[in-house]
Amino acid sequence: MPIEITRTDDPGLAARLIANDRGAYVMGGGTGLMRRIHEGDQAVRHLILLSGPRLRQIAPERGGFFIGAQASMADVLAAPEARALHQPAASVGAPALRNMATVGGNLFARPPYGDLTTALLALDAEAVTASGSGEDRRPLALLLEDRTTRRLVLGVFVPDQGGARLHYTKMTRSHPRGASIVTVAASLARSGGRVTMARVAFGGLAGAPFRASGVERALTGGPLGSETIATAAERIGDGITPMSDALASGWYRLEMAKIHLRRLLGTAQGSPS
C-alpha cells in the first residue's frame, strides 16, 4: 500500500494519529524512518510531518532548559544553553547526519543508537509530551520504559545540574565516528570526598538506553575509590540482556561497558568534584 503523508502544525492531531494508528510515525529528521521505508518495512504506513516553532526551540526555562524534539544535533551543538549536551551530540553520526538527526528521533532510535538519550538519562531529563491541547512532563526514563503507549514528544527539559557533573564516553569500532558498542554517561555530585548522587546510564548495551540503578547504588555514599568503581562495574549487567548484533556480541558489549565505566570514573576521580 502506498504510504500516506499528513502535514500539520497541530500537535494534538499528531498525538492522536500516532496513539491510534500503529502504522503512523512522526517524522523527525527521517534518518531512521527513511531507511525503513527504503527497505520495504511494511510497518511504516503513515508519516506525520509536524511543524511549529516550539519544536525547534532551544531555550532556558525555569529550573533548566528546554530542547524542542525537532532540534537537530547540529542545533544542539550551536546552542550555548545546551553545553552539557555538546559532547554527546558531537558523538552522533557524522556531519551530514548531525544536520538531520533530531533529539526526538534519538529517543526512539533503534539500538545500538541513542547516544544523546543516554546522556539525557544521566542528566535526569524529562520528556515533554503532548497531552490534549497542552503539555505533560514525565521522567525520560519512564517514557522509555513504557513501550506500549505511543506518545508525541514535543521536547525534553533538562534540569539545572547544581553541583553535579556529566562524564560521557562512547566506544565505537570505526573511527572517528561510528555506532556505539557501548555509551556511558555518568552524572556525579560529590561533597566532602563522598559521592552524594550518581546517575549512570548506558546506551548501545541493551535494547534501549537505560539507567543502571545497581551501579548508582554502589557508587553513592562513599568516596570514589578504585574499589568502589570496580564493585559498581560488576552491577552493570543486573537485570539486562546485553544485545548482540553484527558489530559486537552481548558478552563483548558488557565487558567493554565495565572497562569504559572504570576508565570514565577513573578520570572523574581526579577531576574537581
Binding site: G30, T31, M34, R35, H38, L49, P95, A96, N99, M100
Partner: peptide, 19 residues
C-alpha cells in the same frame, strides 16, 4: 549521496523529497 540543502550538508537518501 551527500548534497547541500540551504548550504547544509545532508544525505539525499534519507531526505524525504517533499521536505
Amino acid at each position: 549521496c551527500s548534497v547541500r540543502i540551504d548550504g547544509q550538508l545532508r544525505l539525499a537518501c534519507l531526505t524525504l523529497a517533499e521536505t
